[in-house]
């Protein structure tokens, strides 16, 4: 009885969660332009998608921004996490709290703040401002991912390394970094996906001549959902799924 209940409860929750995605994926293969009725399987929407070069350029823009901002955010975030872990200083808890606040802050607020900042500094909106904003909002996620990975291992390990003759640098290179690597990679992947599909902040901080994928999709959808968009979103979803799975695997093989 109990098992039946648990099973049905979980099915309801999961269909609620994943039904929209499944509908999207199914429709991306539907051989019909306008109708919602099922007209058989086709790959033509994917074909059209891949032959649309303007879309390719936008996708490349997105990949570039995501790649660069993830890399910067990961480098800065990992170093901050190591500093949080290795050193004790005044106001450490407060500073760590500030990082959490950035994660929780409404994106619309962050977007508008960035806009005001860039405008008041007279920085033209475009690739550069977009990059800065993305680095900023990815950074806290990296700090938290890497830091939680670090707190998972025995603090004595670092002391053991020093005890056995390792200098601060050798200790970092031979012990801390290898142990941290899964967290760093996971942080990068997380940043990459966050950057890839951010709409709200990007909407405020990019200029008209630098288009990125999520904003492009948004503007296309305003003229009606076309089957190509279903296909595009399916690809994006598959991509995110793969990245998240890799990140999970990396974080799981702990110790």
């Amino acid at each position: 009885m109990n098992r039946v209940f648990k099973f049905s409860f979980m099915s309801v929750v999961y269909s609620f969660l994943y039904l929209p995605m499944i509908v999207l994926i199914v429709y991306s293969f539907n051989n019909s332009t306008y109708s919602l009725g099922w007209k058989g399987v086709t790959l033509s929407w994917y074909n059209e998608l891949f032959s649309d070069f303007s879309l390719w350029e936008v996708a490349l823009n997105s990949l570039t921004v995501a790649g660069i901002s993830a890399t910067f955010a990961t480098a800065l975030g990992s170093m901050s996490a190591v500093a949080f872990y290795r050193y004790s200083f005044r106001g450490k808890d407060f500073l760590y709290g500030l990082i959490y606040i950035l994660i929780m802050a409404p994106e619309i607020v962050m977007g508008i703040s960035f806009l005001i900042l860039f405008v008041s500094l007279n920085i033209p909106l475009g690739f550069f401002t977009l990059l800065l904003a993305h680095i900023t909002f990815c950074l806290p996620f990296v700090v938290v991912t890497v830091y939680s990975r670090m707190t998972g291992f025995d603090r004595n390990i670092i002391e053991a390394a020093k005890d056995l003759g390792a200098s601060e640098f050798e200790c970092f290179r031979l012990v801390i970094l290898p142990l941290l690597m899964p967290g760093v990679v996971a942080g990068w992947l997380l940043s990459f996906t966050l950057s890839m599909d951010d709409v709200i902040i990007s909407f405020f901080v990019t200029g008209p001549e630098f288009e990125i994928l999520p904003l492009k999709i948004y503007s296309l959808v305003r003229m009606g959902v076309k089957p190509e968009i279903n296909a595009l979103c399916t690809i994006l979803f598959g991509f995110t799924l793969a990245v998240v799975m890799i990140a999970q695997m990396l974080l799981k093989e702990k110790k």
């Binding site: 291992f153 025995d154 004595n156 390990i157 002391e159 053991a160 390394a161 020093k162 005890d163 056995l164 003759g165 390792a166 200098s167 012990v175 142990l179 110790k255």
Partner: peptide, 17 residues
């Protein structure tokens, strides 16, 4: 610590995983 002529066996072992 790295320059001292002593070595430690930790309570938690602290092996490099």
């Amino acid at each position: 610590p790295e320059k001292r002529p002593v070595n430690t066996v930790f309570q938690s072992y602290a092996l490099f995983p």
